[in-house]
Simulated scan of single mutants.
Amino acid sequence: MVPLSLSKPVNTLLLPLPSKKLPFCCVCSSKSSDMEKGIRGGQRLMEFPHLSAPHKDLMVSLISAFETRLDSHLLPSLVPPDVEYYQNHSGTSQGTLLIRPGIVSSPIDFILASWLHLELPTGGAMNITNLQGYLKPSTDAPHFQFELVQCNPTYLIFFLDLTPRKDLVLYPDYLKTFYEDNKLEALRQQLDQVSEIKPYFSSSLHFRSVVSPTGILVSIKCTGDGAQRAGEIIRDNISHVANEVMEIWMYNCVCRVRDIGDYERAQLEKRDRLIKSKAIEMDLSSSLPMQFGQEVADRVLEVIKGAFNI
């Protein structure tokens, strides 16, 4: 359930972070008691009741890292309780949503985290987990996008990207600064070495048009003792790459100061809004009512649209 959600196309242990400190602008001021309580205003989010242990460990570690290291940038979540956790009438599908907006002086617009557990008509269930970081138009640095979809215990789809906010042909320095210099292609290629991981091609050309050249969009299909092998890949491969890309975003995007003129700021606002609006139109507006009913979907969409400013 994200602007670049894979949930519609699909239907057709993070290692501890290193101890190095972020630049001052990213240092978290939260106390250890805040860390113990988990993500503020999103207790249900951190439960992840339907995930395998490696998948849950990955999400808890990613979200905790966002929370503790960016906390000084963020306001508490304002998501109402009936959207923080929601379900369909039969209780077979559930979801959570947390959105924490950035403080006025922060380059962060908001972070969004969620999970969805969807019972499928054909039997079984799908679990979708995601985490996103959106920046304000006061900077042109990329957004952070992570989504891991468990279609079944042995088949997953993984999306990870720093999504560009400029045309990479018109702005080659942008390509060099955020993608070449950060060696994101080398991280993408690491997953190519795992035999069970293959490229995944979304059916949405719009989705494919907004992903960066180094964006990771792959499927993981395991045979034999597939569930155990899928967990190993999450723990040993996906977690490492996700950790590295998250570090790059925090150090080299959130904390990078770039001068933005009025015209460029207006263009960034327009581009961001169009992408978010298109995602809601193409995916959430149809999938949420089908999965949760119109009343629940309307509540959730209202909160998301408010955060997206559309």
Rank of each mutant, 00 (worst) to 15 (best):
P3G: 15
L6D: 04
S7N: 14
V10P: 09
L14T: 13
L15S: 14
P16G: 12
P18I: 11
F24G: 10
C25E: 15
K31R: 15
S32E: 15
E36H: 14
L45I: 13
L58C: 12
M59Y: 12
L62T: 07
S64Y: 09
A65I: 01
F66V: 14
F66K: 06
L74C: 09
E84Q: 14
Q87K: 15
N88I: 08
S93E: 10
S93H: 11
T96H: 06
R100H: 06
I103P: 00
P107T: 05
P107R: 04
P107N: 04
P107E: 01
A113P: 00
W115C: 01
L118S: 04
L118Q: 10
L120S: 02
P121D: 01
A125Y: 07
I128Y: 03
T129Y: 11
L131H: 06
G133V: 09
L135E: 04
D140H: 15
P142I: 09
P142M: 11
Q145W: 12
F146E: 00
L148R: 02
V149H: 05
Q150E: 14
N152E: 14
T154P: 04
T154E: 13
L162W: 02
E180D: 06
N182F: 02
L184G: 05
E185G: 12
Q189P: 02
S195E: 07
S202L: 07
S209K: 11
I234R: 06
N237W: 02
N237A: 01
H240D: 06
A242W: 00
E244T: 02
E247H: 06
V257N: 03
K270G: 03
S277F: 05
S285E: 10
L288H: 07
V296M: 09
V296C: 13
A297Q: 09
A297L: 07
I304W: 05
K305H: 07
G306I: 10
A307D: 10
I310Q: 11
